[in-house]
Design a protein around this nucleic acid. Structure first.
Length: 575
RNA sequence: GCCGAGAUAGCUCAGUGGUAGAGCAUUCCCAUGGUAAGGGAAAGGCCCCGGGUUCAAGUCCCGGUCUCGGCUCCA
């Protein structure tokens, strides 16, 4: 079976699934059933399948496959198609969306589907061991929330049994990396019903990790000409009316808090505050560019089903900054921001980045705020800027721009090849006008500045969620909440263990003592399970020689002088 | 928010209408250890919450809350 054939096999399996369902549940109404990356799905209505029904559906599918069903394409006219699908309301609706008069249908046995193909010729081409019905799920018809929700059955499909099992194994591996699991095991963060959905609480280990990350980001920004600002968590509703956020995102904002007959809202963004500070007084071109950074905690009312650990919370802290500059400075500022992204992710060990340029939907230019010429200029600048910093190019997302801005989103690829959108760099055409931002240029004329929003980690929460999965909880030494665990061979050497501990702590190395009454093996295990990078064992020999026996991520590194070890750790603790 | 599945000890989970369980973690005792689990004992429960059915509910039914898998969404 050839590689590109698997697409056809998957798509054909979708038809066979529908065929099996129609046989077993004649009342079922069928939606759509395409091939997807790892297999296929088909949507149904008017049935109620539970996961426990899947094996018997699968069995029926194998029976159909074995029969050797021939896939046959036919082209019919609209009238004929309407006749064929007269009892399938969803197919009729799909038929309405087709503009052509020649309608392609596929027959396989008794089953007919509205479908442009392509398919395999005969079901015998399918390896019956290579697929598996995976799960059921709800899915809106045609992917729109306004439509009815259908029942979707997902199947996995690969060339053969081994590839299927490889995929399942890989998926199980990914589950082991789940930051929610690791977060619990390493006591990094927690959620609590009484606190509220989507509001993370960082435990001491996670608190340290978050602090170190935040510190790294802020120090880096300071090195690159940024200044630090800080703004409140709530503001009067009037601010959000003027910024346009209330009009567009009211549903996604927390409800108003009423104080002294005025409504306040938790902030969903930091920008309007920064704009207010800019407008404090008349600004000169000599001040520009201004780069104002803030670890800004924002609150967005994500729908309950959309929440997901740290990667999709309701309260989160953006490593936000706004760069206010002249038109001439825009290009260079975007380049600087892109270079900063590259530096930060390289330092964090995620060098594989993918750039995505989000531009306006060409069919819908009117819905965007701002001057057409400015947009074109900005889109061009962003393209040039990406090419300047990266040779691997970028992907264009037409219609991906937000209403006020074209943007560059940057995906970081993690250790198991998954892409995560983290950084964003956006050119804003909305706020400078809405808030009448100006500066005086060298000719004494009043001008509207350009404004760049940028969040490089994105948010501390989302980044940490991704980073935990990327590293599997094995953080680099400089980011590890606990860097060293000192393990005395027995209680007899507690005094020397204390000496080692205090030598490390004196140099602000994050060390702790494994003081419990356990065997050495058990104490080592506890340290490994907690993913402490350095375990140092001390006993009689070490005590006499003022050394430590070093174990780094499960590997024996031998015995070294205590002083040298402290020095080494001090070095590894700085970036 | 929608479709579906869950919620039992700190954690991971078993328990199909009749006295609430295991392993790990915790505490204590013995063992004083040389690189991933030494042995023993104890303690630990509003079986998510509220109703209902039943002689009897962790278990069945209804409502709610939260979690998970999808869908939709992510300024």
């Amino acid at each position: 079976m050839s590689e590109n054939n698997i697409e056809k096999v998957r798509h054909s399996l979708a038809h066979i699934l529908a065929c099996a369902i129609k046989e077993m549940y004649p009342e079922a109404k069928i939606g759509v059933g395409p091939a997807i990356d790892n297999g296929f799905y088909y949507d149904f209505d008017n049935i109620n399948i539970s996961e426990t029904d899947l094996p018997k559906i699968e069995k029926n599918m194998r029976k159909i496959i074995k029969k050797g069903v021939v896939f046959e394409k036919q082209v019919v006219d609209r009238k004929e198609a309407e006749k064929i699908f007269k009892d399938e309301p969803y197919k009729l609706e799909l038929l309405n969306d087709i503009e052509e008069e020649e309608i392609s249908i596929y027959k396989s046995g008794d089953f007919v589907d509205l479908c442009s193909g392509p398919h395999i010729e005969n079901s015998k081409e399918i390896n019956p061991e290579g697929f598996k019905l995976e799960r059921t799920a709800g899915a809106y018809f045609k992917g729109s929330e306004d439509n009815k929700m259908l029942q979707r059955i997902y199947g996995l499909a690969f060339e053969d049994k081994e590839k299927l099992q490889d995929y399942i194994a890989k998926k199980e591996d990914a589950e082991k990396r789940d930051h929610r699991k690791i977060g619990k095991k390493l006591e990094l963060f927690m959620f609590d019903d009484e606190v509220g959905q989507g509001l993370p609480l960082y435990l001491p280990n996670g608190g340290m990790l978050r602090y170190l990350l935040m510190n790294f980001a802020m120090e880096t920004y300071l090195d690159h000409g940024y200044e630090i600002v800080s703004t409140p968590h709530i503001a009067r509703e009037d601010l959000w009316k003027r910024s346009g956020h209330l009009e567009l995102y009211a549903e996604d904002m927390y409800s108003p808090i009423s104080v002294d007959d005025k409504n306040y809202r938790l902030k969903p963004m930091n920008c309007p505050f920064h704009v207010k500070m800019y407008n404090l007084r008349k600004r000169s071109y000599r001040e520009l560019p201004l780069r104002w950074a803030e670890m800004g905690t924002v609150y967005r009312y994500e729908k309950s089903g959309e929440l997901h650990g740290l990667t999709r919370p309701r309260g989160f802290t953006q490593d936000d900054a706004h760069i206010i500059c002249t038109e001439d400075q825009l290009f260079q500022e975007v380049i600087n921001a892109l270079k900063l992204v590259q530096y930060i992710y390289k330092t964090l060990g995620m060098e594989d980045l993918k750039f995505k340029l989000s531009v306006r939907d060409p069919k819908n230019i009117d819905k965007y705020f701002g001057d057409n010429k400015d947009w074109e200029e900005a889109e061009k600048s962003l393209k040039r800027a990406i090419n300047e910093v990266s040779s691997s190019g970028y992907e264009i997302d037409e219609g991906g721009a937000v209403f006020y801005a074209p943007k560059i989103d940057i995906d970081a690829v993690d250790a198991v090849g998954r892409s995560w959108q983290l950084s964003t760099i956006q050119v804003d055409f909305n706020l400078p006008y809405r808030f009448d931002m100006t500066y005086i240029n060298e000719n004494g004329e009043e001008k509207t500045p350009f404004m760049i929003h940028r969040a490089l980690l994105g948010s501390l929460e989302r980044f940490l969620g991704v980073y935990i999965e990327h590293t599997e909880g094995n953080f680099p030494v400089w980011l590890s909440p606990k860097q060293v665990l000192v393990i005395p061979v027995s209680e007899k050497f507690a005094d020397y263990a204390e000496e080692v501990l205090s030598a490390l702590r004196k140099k602000r190395i994050r060390a702790s003592l494994s003081g419990e009454n356990e065997t050495l093996g058990k104490k080592i295990r506890n340290g490994e399970v907690q993913k402490v990078p350095y375990l140092v064992v001390v006993g009689e020999k070490e005590k006499n020689e003022k050394t430590v026996s070093v174990r780094y991520h499960g590997k024996d590194e031998g015995v070294i002088n205590l002083d040298d070890f402290v020095k080494k750790l001090k070095e590894e603790s700085s970036i």
